[in-house]
Simulated scan of single mutants.
Amino acid sequence: MIFKIVFDKIAAFFGLIVLLPFILFVSMLIKIKMPEGPVFFIQRRVGQKGELFNMYKFRSMSISHGGSSISVKGESRITPLGAVLRKYKIDELPELLNVLIGNMSLVGPRPDVPGYADKLVGEDRKVLLLKPGITGPASLKYANEEELLALQDNPEKYNDEVIFPDKVRMNLEYYYNRSFWGDLEIIWKTVLR
């Protein structure tokens, strides 16, 4: 456990240093292409032991949108630049700051918004004992989640009845079978993706 924490912090620190020029470049692009609004999107998410924290991402949507907490490919609220950032998961790079702060890990269940975390009952709540991650087994399986949801007549219903329960199942499996070497494999597969 301590080894994972130390590894996360060292990897996040050096990751932020190495990626700093790219992060600055993306920040400038966002200010040029989406001048109204901030560079970063900050959202309250449910972390370890159910505690709320601010998760940092690059902003990929217009600031004047309303809408669901799930995103579907092709939505008008996602800007053209935002679509590229989301496709290649570049929007998630600022989460390295969350890892450095200590409220996220490199590998773990993706942090949910409060409404979804509230749906966890019984044994499923064990996933809240883990630090949420930038990537994980469910993230790899549903790397194309927005495209998958775009094919559905009712994306929110499909997410609630199919994707969310499957992610919970996979996160619980990760809870019971996690290991440092398994985390390294997940990180490697994420980078190759």
Rank of each mutant, 00 (worst) to 15 (best):
K31P: 01
K31A: 07
K33H: 07
M34F: 00
M34G: 02
P35H: 04
P35R: 12
E36Q: 11
G37S: 11
V39L: 11
F40H: 05
I42V: 14
Q43Y: 07
Q43G: 08
R45P: 02
V46S: 12
V46Q: 06
G47T: 06
K49E: 15
G50N: 02
L52S: 10
L52W: 09
L52N: 08
F53C: 05
F53P: 04
M55P: 01
Y56V: 09
Y56P: 02
K57H: 12
F58C: 08
R59G: 02
R59S: 07
S64Y: 12
G66D: 13
G66M: 14
G67T: 12
G67P: 10
I70G: 01
S71D: 08
V72N: 00
K73I: 00
G74D: 06
E75C: 01
E75K: 05
S76W: 01
S76T: 07
S76R: 12
I78R: 06
T79W: 03
T79D: 06
T79H: 07
T79P: 08
P80R: 10
L81E: 10
L81A: 07
G82A: 12
V84H: 04
V84T: 02
L85R: 01
L85F: 13
L85P: 00
L85N: 03
R86L: 09
K87D: 06
Y88F: 15
K89L: 01
I90H: 04
I90C: 11
L93E: 05
P94T: 04
E95T: 14
L96V: 08
L96Y: 07
L96K: 00
I101Y: 13
M104V: 11
S105I: 00
L106D: 04
V107A: 10
V107D: 04
G108A: 10
P109G: 02
P109Q: 02
P109E: 07
P109I: 05
R110K: 14
R110G: 06
R110E: 06
R110L: 09
D112P: 00
V113S: 03
V113F: 07
P114S: 08
P114L: 10
G115N: 12
G115R: 10
G115W: 02
G115Q: 11
Y116V: 05
Y116L: 12
D118Q: 14
K119L: 15
K119E: 08
K119Y: 10
L120C: 13
V121L: 13
V121R: 13
E123R: 09
D124K: 09
K126G: 08
K126D: 10
V127K: 14
V127D: 01
L129S: 13
L129P: 01
K131E: 01
I134E: 01
T135S: 15
G136V: 05
G136Q: 02
G136C: 13
G136W: 02
A138F: 03
S139T: 15
S139K: 04
S139L: 02
L140H: 03
K141E: 15
K141P: 03
Y142W: 15
Y142G: 10
A143F: 11
A143E: 08
A143D: 00
E146F: 09
E147Q: 15
E147M: 06
L148H: 03
L149A: 04
L149R: 02
A150E: 04
A150L: 04
Q152A: 06
Q152E: 14
D153S: 14
